[in-house]
Computed example of a mutant assay.
Amino acid sequence: MERAFSNPAARLSFRGTSMTETPTTPLHDLEPRTGTPSPRMERDEFIRRFLTRFRDPAFDPLSSELRKVADAAWDGYCNSRKSPRTRKAGPGFADPDYDLSVDWLAAQEAIRLAEQRYQDAESPLRVLLINSSPRSEHTCPGEMSKSYRLVDVARDVLHQQPGVEVNLLDLSRLTSEYGRQIHPCKACFSTAAALCHWPCSCYPNYSLGQVHDWMNDIYPMWVEAHGIMIVTPVHWYQATSPLKLMMDRLVCADGGNPDPTSTHGKHPKEAKQMEMRGWDYPRHLADRLFSVVVHGDAEGAENVRRSMSDWMQSMELLPAGSLAELDRYIGYWEPYATSHEALDADEALQEEVRNAARTLVEAMLAKREGRLVVPGAKLKQPRQK
């Protein structure tokens, strides 16, 4: 397996230091800073929390069995069995004898196969089309989102393009589907780049009940895609909660370490030392093309569109073109209750979304045929993350 760094003695490449400077802090002094209160809980509180998921009276006849299950979960919690099923890493890893989570190994293999599909010049061009609204008629709002309708507008156009496949990622499933979750990023990257593994190794964490994480399915979707098209509403001047969760968890795709054995799991001091010796910040999603469509009802659309574009460009994805980036308002300062009718009437916006999808496909074709020119693409940036 490719290592996360090409040469341990490589020139430095980290925030705030030029690539030729010598670290001012000796490697042996890089002790992790600690001092926050412990979140560990006592047995009674753990059991109480565990059993609250079974409040439905249908579980009452199973109370004794559930208590046994709760006792087993407490044992896993007490002994911090984050990844209870492991196997030896094997050849290709820095430490072949290290016990790696079978969940992580499966996620890594899915990404490897997705990368093969991406690199196959004979395969169809693939677009990952993302609905970022949490709203749907299948849960509390009782109505579909305008974002989903705009995704359908784009999807109709993409399906008409020969040699193009579309993969829909509907983030509203986080709010409406049982057991569908994206857990928050734990910010390992901020401790040291090498501590953030590609794919993320923070989840699942069985001892804390942090399971059903969707990201291991989502990473291969991004990897195999030649183009990404994100459609999102504005929520409080920002990206939606589901979209932001996914964005944060994609940090490992941008400089993350593909070899958890090199840090022996989550050992922060080892990771700090690796970063200080020289880190090459592998861009695992570089050169995919993107389009982004942002819609709002009063304020914030331009800022969210710009932040989405900046985020993807910082990961070295490529903008498909000016028509592929769109921010618009639907029913500006009008009642929410009639916003779908406002979208019905805004035929110009619907055509702009179609043009964004067409522009993305044009850029994908140009890139595959070697006609896409990206000024500055071959320049080496003096600063990394």
Rank of each mutant, 00 (worst) to 15 (best):
P32R: 05
L125E: 11
Y237I: 10
V294P: 00
V102Y: 01
W279S: 00
M19T: 11
A106T: 11
V231L: 06
H267C: 11
K266I: 13
A357D: 02
P204A: 08
A9V: 03
A94W: 07
R112H: 14
Q350I: 02
L51H: 01
E334R: 12
E31C: 05
A110R: 14
C78M: 10
L349I: 01
S63P: 04
E45V: 13
L171F: 06
F46V: 02
D170V: 07
S136E: 04
S63E: 12
R305Y: 03
L208W: 13
V231C: 02
A301W: 10
E65C: 03
R180H: 15
M274H: 15
Q181F: 14
Q350D: 07
R117M: 12
C188T: 06
L317T: 04
E21L: 08
W198Y: 15
A253G: 13
P23G: 02
M247W: 10
K380M: 11
M41A: 08
H212K: 14
L30G: 00
P61M: 05
V304G: 00
P39K: 07
M247H: 10
N167H: 12
Q238K: 11
M144W: 12
P57T: 12
W198I: 07
A286Y: 05
T338D: 09
Q108A: 15
S147C: 08
E275I: 08
D248C: 04
A193K: 00
P319V: 06
R305D: 08
